[in-house]
């Protein structure tokens, strides 16, 4: 790695660390309902929302009521997004007169945005009206992020309370996380992004003449959108020439800010954060990366604060940071190392003051290798899925990092809420394993971990690998799955594995190369997104309810400390073992074999 890369990563980690305590403390105060300035100021709005919706804020909920409320809320969100897409041609704010999306694409996108996945089978600037983008997609960016946060808060309450039948009120938690956390942060970030050049308007698209004609190649597709192939199985390319360019417009900054803060990731434009209208400068890139991590990282402090021992939160934060640094180092090193086949042609791939060196394919020149690899790690270790470079063009081991980050369950800071609750489930499994080793009843934060918690934790952890592996196996076995793959051999397998991993983990980033806007992929990935989001949530909230009902055991000599180095190592080991052992066979068929084939030819 270059010195510039190390400096960028260290500065980024320090900036994140600086934000953890103030933001985490603020969120703890919000969800504990303490009389802070923000809650006093927002009280009229908050109580107006409750009156409008008929919410009784004094009514606490059991875990079942809390879960059903959350599920109904997200179902209504998905139905609304579906309706908007199908009706957009008759609705206002559609200057380009975009037609309604196909039913399967609308289904996929509705599930995608209601589940915080934001997988995009469509191209935003050529399919979605401004109304659909704002009222459908951006609103879901807020609400799905709030849904993730409230599950984490409910689990924290389960750990913090004792002998309680309830875990909070889902409507109050959803309202507070939206009104006091997401909206203010998104507003500040949107203004900061506009200052960097991110656009915000309702203008129709602008056609401009180019100074010189541009000739380019693109894969030829059939009527269903699948790439056509020649007799050897390679994609057929068509050569096109253009003299004009259409510049997309739209309310991008407002959607960009919540896209990052809510770890949603669905871009207004198809190129996502690689497009200069979404991410124009190095500073906007840094702000966007920081925005992705700020809430997931700060929630660890919120956790420590709400359970009455901030050391617990710092231990979880430390485990996440160690994993993060390891992953970003692998990505940066391999991208800077470059492609050996290109080096064999005599191309200089060493970094120098005149060039970034390494593998620059698929990366924006204004970001370079380190800022691209760091962004890729940030976006896939959380459940964001925004991209500022083409993950498909990374070296095999560079591309392995985003894939493996997601397969770990996105617990390295993770998505807003999802990262913390998934990591706490791993902590429960970790103390259970430690309890087995030392022959004591496992306990976490004074709560006995018994059969029910372990069954629920197992469900929460195993749902994702099950649907990823079954989905990938089904896709590679069926012609409908194979037909959308743009590259042959191991890389093509990686593209399918990446798609199912991304959908099932509610990440939403794409490896590229795959043309997934087909009936098969829209339906299959839609199913994976729903199951990968809500089935673990049900199990996590069941754990929350069960833990809240338990008595707290006082700390004794036999209690395993869960704020020390030993616990951090145990937690990292549990995450790695579960993630690695589940996915190593699939990874061996994809990026690992591709790496070996590449370097064998060097």
């Amino acid at each position: 790695m270059t010195a510039a890369a190390v400096t960028l990563i260290v500065c980024f980690l320090v900036l994140t660390l600086v934000c953890v305590k103030p933001v985490g403390l603020y969120m703890a105060n919000v969800f504990d309902g303490r009389p802070i300035w923000a809650l006093r100021t927002g009280a009229p709005l908050e109580h107006w929302i409750y009156r409008l919706c008929g919410v009784d804020i004094r009514r606490e909920m059991s875990w079942q009521q809390y879960t059903i409320g959350l599920l109904v809320f997200n179902l209504i969100g998905a139905l609304a997004v579906y309706a908007l897409q199908r009706l957009q041609v008759w609705l206002p704010l559609n200057p380009q007169k975009f037609a309604a999306l196909t039913p399967d694409s609308a289904f996929n996108t509705a599930v995608s945005f209601a589940t915080n996945t934001n997988w995009q089978g469509y191209s935003g600037e050529s399919a979605m009206s401004y109304l659909t983008q704002m009222l459908g997609l951006a609103v879901q960016n807020f609400l799905s992020a709030a849904s993730g946060i409230v599950v984490a808060i409910a689990l924290i309450r389960g750990l913090a309370r004792h002998s309680a039948d309830t875990i909070g009120n889902v409507w109050v938690d959803l309202t507070r996380s939206t009104v006091y956390v997401l909206v203010p942060l998104a507003l500040v970030l949107a203004i900061a992004l506009v200052s960097q050049g991110v656009i915000q308007n309702f203008s129709a698209y602008k056609d401009v003449s180019m100074a010189e004609a541009l000739t380019y190649q693109q894969p030829k597709t059939d009527a269903a959108g699948n790439p056509l192939r020649d007799a050897a199985g390679h994609p057929v390319q068509e050569t096109l020439t253009t003299h004009a360019q259409t510049l997309p417009m739209g309310p991008i900054a407002s959607q960009e800010s919540i896209k990052e803060l809510g770890t949603n990731g669905g871009g207004f434009l198809n190129a996502n954060s690689a497009h200069p209208y979404e991410n124009p400068t190095a500073l906007s890139n840094l702000l966007e990366m920081l925005a992705i991590l700020i809430i997931p990282a700060a929630l660890t402090y919120t956790f420590g604060r709400m359970v009455g021992d901030t050391r617990q939160g710092w231990a979880v934060y430390a485990a996440m940071t160690i994993l993060f640094v390891s992953m970003v180092s692998i990505a940066c090193y391999n991208e800077q190392r470059g492609n050996p086949l290109i080096a064999r042609l005599g191309v200089d791939q060493a970094a120098s003051p005149l060039q970034p060196g390494g593998n620059m394919e698929g990366k924006e020149a204004r970001f370079g290798i380190a800022a691209s690899a760091l962004f890729a790690t940030v976006t896939t270790s959380t459940s964001c899925g925004a991209v500022n470079s083409a993950h498909d063009s990374y070296t095999p081991l560079g591309g392995f990092v985003p894939l493996f980050n997601m397969q770990l369950g996105e617990v390295v800071y993770g998505g807003v809420g999802t990262g913390l609750y998934s990591m706490l489930i791993f902590a429960i499994v970790g103390v259970f394993i430690a309890g087995l080793m030392i022959g004591r009843t496992p306990e976490y934060l004074g709560k006995k971990i018994e059969a029910f918690e372990m069954k629920m934790s197992s469900i929460a952890i195993l749902v994702m690998p099950f649907i990823v592996l079954v989905g990938t196996a089904a896709a590679v076995s069926m012609s409908a799955g194979q037909g959308a793959v743009g590259n042959p051999q191991a890389h093509g397998f990686s593209e399918i594995l990446y798609a199912f991993t991304s959908a099932s983990n509610n990440n939403g980033s794409a490896f590229g190369g795959l043309s997934p806007n087909t009936l098969f992929y829209n339906s299959a990935l839609g199913l994976c997104m729903w199951l990968g989001r809500f089935w673990p949530i049900v199990a996590v909230l069941a754990v929350a309810g069960s833990l809240a009902a338990k008595k707290r055991i006082p700390v004794s000599d036999g209690t395993m400390p869960t704020h020390g180095v030993t616990f951090v190592i145990l937690l990292i080991g549990t995450v790695l073992l579960v993630g690695a052992l589940t996915f190593v066979p699939a990874l061996a068929l994809g990026p690992i074999v591709e790496h070996l084939m590449l370097w064998a030819r060097a």
Binding site: I68, A106, F452, I459, L527, W535, V538
Partner: peptide
């Protein structure tokens, strides 16, 4: 087709609702 995909959303919700009920029963004391 719209009916099929709206029904698919409702079926996904119903399946998840059933999971809540099943896990709640699993957690009840015997």
């Amino acid at each position: 087709m719209d009916v099929i995909f709206i029904l698919a959303l409702l079926v996904l919700y119903a399946a998840t609702h059933c999971l809540v009920v099943a896990l709640a029963r699993l957690g009840e004391p015997e």
